[in-house]
Amino acid sequence: MEIKFNDVSYKTILKNIDIKFLDGQIIGLTGSSGSGKTTLVEMIDALVLPTSGNVLIGNYKVDNKVKLKNINDLRFNVGLVFENSEEQIFNTTVYNEISFGMRYFKYKTDQIEKHVKDSLNMVGLSEDYMHKNPFNLSHGETKKLAIASVLAFNPEILILDEPVVALDNRSKKNLIKIIRALKARYNKTIIIVSQDTDFLHKVVDYVFVMADGQIVMEGTKYDVFAKEAELLNYNVKTPQLIAFSNLVLAKKGIKIGYRDEINDLIKDVYRYVK
């Protein structure tokens, strides 16, 4: 499902957003606090309606006149995991939490248990979590639960809003695995909103940078993250892997490549230092 923002504005928070999210990509959306990132992705789930312009998600159109029936159909196809997972929990058992969305999106009852188990599996939580109280879980487990609850109704588009804030490393690594599996196996479109550009660099293909309600940079992650000075202007940090290559080029005039993994970077360094 392709997502297209057609000259969308929303109060003073979004200004003339005109961009496309291609189907089946992993896209990063970054920018400093208050730049409008959360509002932009909430619009994809029709939680916020544009004051002008419209958003096309597949065949659904979101503008300021859209009706509820269409909204629910759309929301069935968009899974949004909010920044604060504890604000997304409405039930006292993990089982009820994951099946919550399914019941309201009218899944057949006999299929629910299977889907719950599949969702838990997908995020790396064992089946005995089903009876646990979601409020007693650790931060990393809560985050996984939130993702499982959203994957449960199998949306084509998955949006993660600041998924790694305060997340420990193990959970971060797991999350990266999950994201890659979702793209590889199910070809989902995944949008990740994050200020952690080191994390984004590891998972995304394409990047948008926002500032003051507008899209100010876009391109492949290598294109965008390479422009350190411009990023700094927008209060965005360059991933260390890229910063290193940039520094070597700037100081020593040697062009080692841009790498996604530190081991690959080491190999390049070794080659060029000899």
Binding site: K172, Q240, F244, I262, N263, I266
Partner: peptide, 14 residues
């Protein structure tokens, strides 16, 4: 399950 800082990882591998 703790990830070392980037510069430390780089130093150790180099």
């Amino acid at each position: 399950g703790l990830e070392l800082p980037f510069m430390v990882q780089l130093s150790l591998k180099l």
